[in-house]
């Protein structure tokens, strides 16, 4: 049985996200910058996974494979961080509650190791997802 941990997911900008976005979202650098989840060391322990392994992040709203890395701006136990982008947006809470604004921050997610699965680049991710191929 693969351990699953629960995190509160937030997303947002990072400088690497900004740089790689301007460098071309179809490029591997963008995937490397944004197809990640930053996890606190304490949560890594619970997850029972190595740093830099791929994980599957699942919420009520969707599921995505990203690479788990140690929090760069931590500690933040209990919080998961995926930089803003198509990976985060597979799982965040899209409800706007009549404000127009999806709830990009504060989505409960399950995280489990998925070392055999691949982190897709943004274009592949989105074009396969819209066709229901994921």
């Amino acid at each position: 049985m693969v351990p699953k941990i629960k995190l509160n997911l937030i997303s947002g900008r990072t400088i690497q996200q900004g740089v790689s976005m301007e460098g071309g979202k179809e490029k591997p650098a963008y995937r490397n910058a944004c197809g990640i989840i930053e996890i606190d060391p304490a949560d890594f322990k619970k997850l029972g996974a190595w740093r830099n392994t791929n994980v599957r992040v699942t919420s009520t709203f969707g599921s995505v494979v990203v690479k788990a890395i140690e929090a760069t701006q931590g500690p933040h136990p209990g919080l998961g961080w995926i930089p803003m982008g198509p990976w985060a947006n597979q799982v965040i809470n899209p409800n706007t509650y009549s404000t127009g604004m999806p709830t990009f921050k504060g989505t409960p997610v399950d995280v489990e190791a998925a070392s055999d699965e691949e982190v897709l680049d943004s274009i592949t991710l989105i074009t396969r997802a819209v066709r229901g191929e994921l």
Binding site: G24, G62, N89, P94, I123, L125, I126, A129
Partner: peptide, 29 residues
């Protein structure tokens, strides 16, 4: 890239145009 995926999927199903210097997830759908 920056809308929840459910919205992106709807764009893909509609007549659509993306005006952007870059290749982006939007241009892709």
């Amino acid at each position: 890239a920056h809308f929840p995926f459910g919205s992106v999927k709807k764009i893909w199903g509609l007549p659509s145009v993306c005006i952007d210097p870059h290749i982006t997830p939007t241009s892709a759908v």
